[in-house]
Design a protein around this nucleic acid. Structure first.
Length: 425
RNA sequence: GGAGAGAUGGCCGAGUUGGUCGAAGGCGCUCGACUCGAAAUCGAGUAGGCGGCUAAUCCCCGCCUCGUGAGUUCGAAUCUCACUCUCUCCGCCA
């Protein structure tokens, strides 16, 4: 959410910033309502001031045994007018809130301006895609052939866009989760959290999934609860409506959760394999930091996510997203894309964003910079560290051998009982 | 699911015959005194939001907020209703 005062003070500048996200004219209605709100507010506050003084006067007069009927009648009438004006203000404020909740974050100055992914900027590459001296298989062939992924039975259970991991497929998924959590908690200083997988509406508003993107999520029947689309939601909302001590910052959290997404509007995309599912596993990283440090922290967070891919020996590249390709809440986003032989291309496996105070404002997460100083909104960051299913797919494809077996990356072997190879039985 | 208790400032905790209560007291924190320094002690200060004024996120003025939302009243932390959450006991369950 943007700061209403900032919009009021400089609407042209904000409008220009929003044009980088190809949005225009959303401020006009806000400015109109904002002006009316302040006018009505001024009047009603005057009346309330009168009422407060008069009520006190009545108290005194009654104590002194004087007649108060005239004054009471007068205040009663003022009370009716106050009520009318208060009702109007309430309506205006809810309209203003709807407008503000639907405006995306403003891109950071370092973000390339452009309408889609074609304007993204490649930042760096790590590792070399392997050259195969045989025709590599896609993971959606490798998995079933090795009997570690079962799409047909998953369809029987739940329909399209689900998978069943079996045997070493299940074991490796669990191994990757443990490995990532261990690295981030032991090496990178994140506190491990196991949050609820269902959250309320306030959380979804706080991180920006609602009100705009309700069709992307799974909502529980008859309840104001949602299945988490990412652990970013529970982790960032841990401190919703809180005032944090400056000394407690920065806060680093990591969590494994399944992620549930309706994938509305992505029919026909990535229909094969485990790239795009309604339910997938992910280890997430979230940081809550002081504003002046957030961009430094974004670089570190991205590096933390990159490191797990380096340890797995998976080639990747880092891409800076353009203004039009960024998510709703982000001010700046790096995507990490892992090399996938079946696509002969890099495929997103992590998205690391600085949301600045956009989410903090919605979720009301503040801190006191110094004793006696005014409260300020914190900055929040999040990034996948990284997506588990896509990591499994990348391992299968990058570590496959000509006979269809798959070498287990060395760092995962301790998590898999020392096993070195997955081969069909 | 049944019965009962409760929700107040960063924290703990008074206040429920409605009226100078945004709110005693304590802790914590900040500043000062004492001290070589520290502890202890003493003194002062210390909620948030909105609006006006303003160069200002300094002052100053006003309005709102005692779980949330309605209501009664000239006036509500205090009374009424609904809801949410927490705790205790019973039942059920992993």
């Amino acid at each position: 959410m943007l700061d209403a005062k900032r919009i009021r003070a400089n609407p042209e500048a904000i409008d220009k910033e929003l044009s980088k996200r190809y949005i225009s004219g959303v401020l006009d209605q806000f400015l109109l309502l904002d002006k009316e709100r302040r006018t009505v507010l001024g009047r009603v506050e005057e009346l309330k001031n009168f009422r407060n003084n008069a009520s006190q006067e009545i108290g005194k007069k009654k104590k002194a045994g004087e007649d108060t009927n005239t004054l009471m009648e007068e205040v009663r009438q003022v009370g009716q007018e106050i009520k009318n004006l208060d009702d109007r203000i309430k309506v205006i404020e809810s309209e203003i809130e709807i407008i503000l909740l639907n405006i995306p974050n403003i891109p950071h100055e370092s973000v390339p301006v452009g309408e889609d992914e074609n304007y993204n900027v490649e930042i760096r590459y790590w590792g070399k895609p392997r050259s195969f001296d045989f025709e590599p298989q896609a993971h959606w062939d490798l998995g079933p052939n090795l009997d570690i992924l079962d799409f047909e039975r998953a369809a029987k259970l739940s329909g399209a866009r689900f998978t069943v991991n079996k045997g070493l497929g299940a074991r490796m998924e669990r191994a990757i989760i443990s490995f990532f959590l261990d690295i981030h908690s032991s090496e990178h200083g994140y506190q491990e959290i196991l949050p609820p997988f269902m959250v309320n509406t306030e959380c979804m508003l706080g991180t920006g999934q609602l009100p705009k993107f309700s069709e992307d999520m799974f909502k529980l029947e008859g309840r104001e609860m949602y299945l988490v689309p990412t652990a970013e939601v529970p982790l960032t909302n841990l401190h919703r409506e809180e005032i944090l001590e400056a000394e407690s910052l920065p806060l680093y959290y990591t969590a494994y959760t399944p992620c549930f997404r309706a994938e509305a509007g992505s029919h026909g995309r990535d229909t094969r394999g485990i790239i795009r599912l309604h339910q997938f596993n992910k280890v997430e990283l979230v940081k809550i930091v002081e504003p002046q440090k957030s961009y430094e922290e974004l670089e570190k967070l991205t590096a933390d996510a990159e490191e797990v891919l380096q340890l797995l020996g998976l080639p990747y590249r880092v891409v800076l997203l353009s203004s039009g390709d960024m998510g709703f809440s982000a001010a700046k986003t790096y995507d990490i894309e892992v090399w996938m032989p079946a696509y002969n291309d890099y495929k997103e496996i992590s998205s690391c964003s600085n949301c600045e105070d956009f989410q903090a404002r919605r979720a009301n997460i503040r801190y006191r910079p110094a004793p006696k100083a005014r409260l300020q909104y914190v900055h929040t960051l999040n990034g996948s560290g990284v997506a588990i299913g896509r990591t499994l797919a990348a391992i299968l494809e990058n570590y496959q051998q000509e006979d269809g077996s798959v070498i287990i990356p060395e760092v995962l072997r301790p998590y898999m009982g020392g096993l070195e190879l997955i081969k069909s039985s």
